[in-house]
């Protein structure tokens, strides 16, 4: 079933389009990794889905309904997003995760089922032991898990993530990606911008390569992570092998071969 449907989308800033997607469908249950060079339009694409940005032209449908006709509070109960927190304020982890329930209880305040969702989200991301700590006291890995827990408390239907593992070491990155995989297996649609092609290849069911504001390729990792595609996408030279355990492709960069 299609969750999002793009039709003739043009999007950008100050009326200058930087992203052009004539047609694209995202299905329920997809685990999408968006890859591509810096400035290609990946974040713009994610902002459209998060409704932080409105397209210059064209329509996006969410569950067959035009996205602009859905009130923001209703949309926020279905689609949650994880981006770097602009200002890390000294809130406790518990009260920060509780903010995720805001769209569900704008007027009434939190009820029993809200607290249940908060607790479940904390368990899922393994952050219960941090409950009483302040956000300012957490490490990057902990903060990212807490941020994901907040998004889960908000909605597990569809989660958008902007570079969730970029500044984390391999251990913490894998921990986060494992949480996302588990969520996806339980039916969540995950859409993540990833800079690590190998992590994207390993975890995602579908890879979308974005370059110069256009979708460059779109498909299963085994099909589209080829040296031809990756070299053309990033203007570099690389080797692509297959991970003997998972059967997924992985990429080795070749030094000193950046094409200007």
């Amino acid at each position: 079933m299609s969750l999002f449907e793009f039709t003739n989308i043009q999007a950008g800033y100050r009326k200058i389009p930087v992203l052009d997607i004539p047609r694209c469908t995202i299905n329920t249950g997809d685990f999408i990794g968006i890859i591509g060079p810096n400035g290609a339009g990946k974040s713009t694409l994610l902002k459209l889905l998060a409704r932080i940005l409105t397209p210059l032209s064209g329509t996006i449908a969410y569950k067959k309904q035009n996205i602009t006709t859905i009130p923001h509070t209703v949309y926020a109960t279905q689609v949650s997003s994880v981006t770097d927190i602009e200002r890390v304020l000294p809130y406790t982890v518990e009260s920060f995760i509780a903010l995720g329930r805001f769209p569900h209880a704008t007027v009434t305040g939190l009820k029993a089922h809200d607290y249940k969702a908060i607790n479940e989200a904390m368990q899922y991301c393994n952050v219960q032991h941090l409950q009483q700590k302040k956000l300012t006291e957490l490490s990057s890995g902990e903060l990212q898990r807490v941020n994901i827990a907040r998004a889960l408390a908000q909605s597990t239907e569809c989660i958008l993530l902007d570079e969730p593992v970029s500044h984390l070491d391999i251990h913490h990155a894998i921990a986060i990606m494992d949480i996302l995989r588990k969520l996806n297996q339980h039916g969540s649609t995950i859409i993540a911008i990833l800079h690590d092609i190998n992590i994207a290849s390993e975890y995602c069911s579908r890879i979308i390569g974005v370059k110069d504001g256009k979708i460059f390729f779109d498909g299963k990792p085994q099909e589209c992570i080829t040296y031809q595609n990756i070299e053309a996408l990033f203007d570099c030279v690389c080797l692509v092998y297959t991970n003997p355990i998972s059967g997924k492709p992985y990429v080795y960069p070749v030094p000193e071969h950046v094409k200007q």
Partner: peptide
Amino acid sequence: HRHLDIISFGTGFATTHGIS
């Protein structure tokens, strides 16, 4: 008070939590 909590974390954060 909860609107203000969410708004103080950032503009994008507020939008994705349904603050208009």
